Simulated scan of single mutants.
Amino acid sequence: MDDSGRLVKARARYVSALMQGESILARSVVDQAIGFGASRADIYLRILAPAQVRIGELWHEGVINVAQEHLATTITMEMMDFLRNGMERGPSLGVRAVVTPVEDDQHFIGARMVADFLAMDGWDVDFLGSGTPANDLAEFVRNRDADVLALSVTLPEFLPNVTAAVEAIRKLRPDSPRILLGGNALKHAGQDPDPLGCDAVAHNIPDALREARRLVGLTKRKLTLDEQLTLLGRRINAARTSRRMTQQELAQASGLERTYISMIENGRQNLTIEAALKIANALDIQPSDLLAQP
């Protein structure tokens, strides 16, 4: 079975563990995923995040109650704490993000995931957990000299709190940070962030990373060697997994060692032009696709 199929099965087992309230069983699913080569990012995006969405759906359908939903959230937070400890932070980008749910919004899993991925990307990140009152948030953002404020709003009734937070921040700090908005409530609000006073919206974690970088102009500057190697590794990983190839299969197709592929995907190997060509050919992509500036 390929990695994609394994992740689908792992997600189903993980949802089952959450419904049973079994943290040990949930941890075993995560350990097994790591064992068959899934990256921590894959586990976040393809197991934990969709599982939490499913748990929310089951609650709305009346299959599970609030207590069960809360326990499921607690278990997933435990899994995220475990995975976070093993994540490697990318080279520092010299920018800071504050990530938080809006005031009164107690759903924070998505915001926590965005905070973790920003940290992996090299951002300095302050994650505030529960929603913070608008004026206190504005003061905190000013004192921390944040470049981006990422707000999460999960329910439509909390959308007015987005506007309140934005107004408080703009009032207190004229050169306020760029504001990125995400969360399930956007499905009801549409995609235009202007009515809420925000600079951009994100509908998933990869969106949030791209938009955060765009908002501070990181896509326009030249990357350092370490940043380029990290980006190159992520592109190779994305191309490989999208083709449902394992690292061993890519190694065989390119004539390289699997450990060498692993080091490249983790940004720890300065590969030669010959190796880049072999990998590009094995993935059936242009070498320029791997090396292009973001």
Rank of each mutant, 00 (worst) to 15 (best):
S16L: 12
C198H: 07
D3C: 01
I205Q: 07
S4Y: 14
R142C: 08
D126A: 14
V148I: 12
E211F: 10
V148S: 04
L186R: 10
A238P: 04
G90L: 05
A119K: 13
V148E: 05
R84L: 12
L290P: 02
E257F: 11
A282I: 02
N184A: 15
L172C: 11
L225F: 09
L71S: 07
E88F: 05
L58D: 10
L93E: 05
I64P: 02
A189P: 08
R213C: 02
E57A: 14
S16K: 14
L58H: 09
L93T: 03
Q248K: 14
R240W: 01
V8R: 14
A238G: 02
A119I: 03
A212D: 01
D199W: 05
A49K: 12
I261N: 00
N266H: 13
D116W: 07
A67C: 03
D284S: 13
G62P: 04
L231W: 10
D284P: 00
A292T: 11
R234W: 14
P206S: 02
D147C: 02
L159Q: 08
L7D: 07
E265N: 08
N65D: 15
L180M: 03
R13L: 12
D289G: 03
R11D: 06
S92K: 11
L209M: 02
G131H: 03
L58V: 00
P156R: 03
Q252G: 08
I169G: 04
A189F: 09
R96N: 08
P206M: 06
L149Q: 03
Q228N: 09
E157S: 13
V102E: 07
G86K: 09
G35K: 07
D116C: 11
R235V: 04
D81V: 11
L180G: 01
R27L: 14
A41N: 12
L229M: 15
R235D: 00
S254T: 03
F36W: 07
K187Q: 14
L283W: 01
A282C: 04
A282H: 08
L7G: 01
A41V: 15
M1D: 10
I285K: 03
M79Q: 15
A185R: 05
N161M: 13
A168D: 10
S288H: 09
